[in-house]
Amino acid sequence: MDWLSMGRWSPYAVGVGIGVLSWLTFVLSDKPIGCSTAYARTSGMIERLFRGNSVVAKPYYAKFAPVIDWEWMLVLGIFMGSFVSAKLSGQFQALWVPNKWVSTFGYTPVARLLVAFVGGIFMGLGARWAGGCTSGHGISGTLQLAVSGWLAALCFFIGGIAVAMLIY
């Protein structure tokens, strides 16, 4: 069982594995893999704690009710599965600043946290605006040959490459 404790698998093995996983989600749950609506639902749940049930009447939450659903559990599963994998390979570590950031901007945890927060806002906004993320559009949309998936995935990378080149 050495392969379970390996630090890295071939990207092709991982990709084929995710492809097979998508067969399972379609057959067993009638759902494509996707992640970003889970954040929209959670955001609604948090807002509901502060502002009460009127939140449910918001047009967006009428479409995506602020409740725990299949996809929400999928995202929770990602967290747990990654934890197990990292523990098995000894890669689990509390880390505030990624290496690439340290080598360019130094060990600046507060700056990294603020930038990650701002990046997260763009990502949450953009993912809901586009109606999906790297999983929902980038993998599930493209594999179903959906025009929305291919167009969105292309724009994810165009925007991402342009801004990454500006930052680094």
């Binding site: 930038v115 701002v118 953009g126 586009a130 109606g131 292309l154 724009c155």
Partner: peptide
């Protein structure tokens, strides 16, 4: 949605 949202997502992808 796909183009405007996709590009906004791309910005977040690189910044986050």
């Amino acid at each position: 949605t796909s183009v405007v949202g996709g590009l906004l997502f791309g910005v977040g992808f690189a910044v986050l």
